[in-house]
């Protein structure tokens, strides 16, 4: 699993990247009450706003970590947004993407690096 400075994680699965937010990010957001997911098949560029998360207090965006195509979204989150708090690094993945340029992942952190990053 790789981690970004935007507090996302990426996990490779069957040649695609599964993307979610970290436990740390979920704790910071607080109770998630709404998740808006992108359309499957959307082509995105790194740093595009692809997901909207609303907690009780505020709205936040999740950015595309890399260029690519959204191949699948976790529509269970739409009906059950609190999954993001319950299991952020497992069941509550947001989307899967086919990435265009693997070199964009070179700067991402491993688990130890991320733990150090959040201090």
């Amino acid at each position: 699993m790789k981690f970004t400075e935007e507090h996302e994680w990426l996990r490779e699965e069957d040649g695609e990247m599964v993307v979610g937010i970290t436990t740390h990010a979920a704790e910071q957001l607080g109770d998630v009450v709404f998740v808006e997911l992108p359309d499957e098949g959307t082509t995105v560029s790194k740093d595009d706003e692809v997901v909207v998360i609303e907690s009780v207090k505020a709205a936040s965006d999740i950015l595309a970590p890399v260029d690519g195509e959204i191949t699948e979204v976790n529509s269970a989150l739409t009906d059950n947004p609190s999954m993001v708090n319950d299991d952020p690094q497992g069941e509550a993945w947001f989307f899967k993407m086919k990435i265009s340029d693997a070199s964009q992942m070179d700067d991402f952190m491993d688990e130890a690096g991320y733990q150090k990053f959040i201090g």
């Binding site: 607080g30 109770d31 009450v33 907690s55 009780v56 207090k57």
Partner: peptide, 12 residues
């Protein structure tokens, strides 16, 4: 204090 460890939803 904006929230305690319980969190806004459970505090409410």
């Amino acid at each position: 204090p904006v929230q305690y460890p319980l969190g806004v939803m459970k505090e409410h």
